[in-house]
């Protein structure tokens, strides 16, 4: 028994390590100051796919990502950890997409890939924390979804059994295939890169990367087809340009505001004993504590 698995993965700015230089003087976000990483929960998603492949060798894992040219890094990262193939969906026309336009584009790419049993995505991407793209891709493909998954416990030709992590408990559900699963950060962490795959795929590139870097080892790429990372445009996946990117996004950003906190007149204290004791006395006296 083998399966065809598609993992949805996104390259995101590392918003968990936002430093002081993340904001420019004019108050806009300095994306350049943030390292781009593999969205953490998408690594949990990849690990679930790899787990199935461990159990059913011959299973094929394709990592699918939509983003700018550099998002091909995500595909290589996936290959280094055990994925079999990578597809980059990239086109100017995809820019400015909200979750609905993103899921439309991803669903069109999934249709182009064609044969799949299960799609695994992260629960949410840390750049927006919306958790919408997974369910929306499932809806667009007309397949069931299981969100907040902690483990794909078992799978056969017909169905999968999935453990979900709820706010206050766990739930085990069974769904027929094909199915889309979104995976929680509480799931097993992803295995590290594998030295053998690193060696094998380190020169894997998209067409654009080969052009930009002027790599003309034509021989290398024709003798080792697995080094060619697939790159698709709007036209390649037969997508309607109007439904992509900004024009396909029902939500618009009306404005972005810098946060102005309602600054208070604060009392300033040090760690001096008398000051701290006075504070405690004051809080007790006005019944805030005690």
């Amino acid at each position: 028994m083998t399966f065809n698995i598609i993992v949805l993965a996104k390259q995101v700015p590392d918003t968990r390590n936002v430093g002081k230089d993340a904001m420019k003087a004019d108050g806009t976000v300095n994306r350049g100051a943030l390292p781009a990483i593999f969205n953490p929960e998408d690594l949990n998603a990849l690990e679930q796919a790899l787990g199935i492949k461990d159990q059913y060798p011959g299973t094929k894992i394709t990592v699918l990502t939509m983003g700018p040219a550099r998002a091909a890094e995500i595909l290589r990262e996936g290959l280094f950890r055990g994925a079999d193939d990578g597809v980059l969906l990239t086109d100017r026309a995809f820019a400015g997409a909200d979750t609905l336009a993103t899921s439309y584009a991803l669903a069109m790419a999934v249709k182009k890939i064609g044969d799949f049993d299960i799609i695994i995505s992260g629960r949410q991407a840390i750049d927006g924390d919306t958790a919408q793209v997974g369910p929306q891709v499932a809806e667009k493909l007309g397949i069931p979804q299981v969100t907040y998954a902690e483990a794909i416990e078992s799978i056969d030709r017909k169905r999968a059994r999935v453990k979900r992590r709820l706010e206050n408990g766990v739930e085990v559900v069974e769904s027929p295939l094909p199915l889309l699963v979104t995976v929680n950060g509480s799931a097993r962490t992803c295995r590290p890169r594998n030295a053998k795959f690193l060696q094998k795929y380190k020169h894997a590139k998209t067409v654009t990367e080969r052009q930009v870097e002027n790599l003309d080892y034509i021989d290398l790429y024709s003798s080792r087809p697995y080094l060619n990372l697939t790159e698709w445009s709007v036209a390649d996946v037969n997508a309607d340009p109007v439904q992509c990117g900004l024009s396909g996004s029902p939500t618009k950003v009306k404005k972005i505001e810098n946060v102005v906190f309602q600054a208070k007149e604060s009392k300033r204290l040090t760690d001096d004993d008398t000051e701290l004791e006075d504070l405690i006395k004051e809080l007790i006296a006005n019944h805030t504590i005690g």
Binding site: P13, T15, V18, A22, M23, G27, V29, L34, D127, G128, T251, K252, V253, K254, K255, I256, E257, N258, V259
Partner: peptide, 9 residues
């Protein structure tokens, strides 16, 4: 986005 801004959607 990582703090400091509020978006009106």
């Amino acid at each position: 986005f990582g703090g400091n801004i509020v978006a009106w959607i």
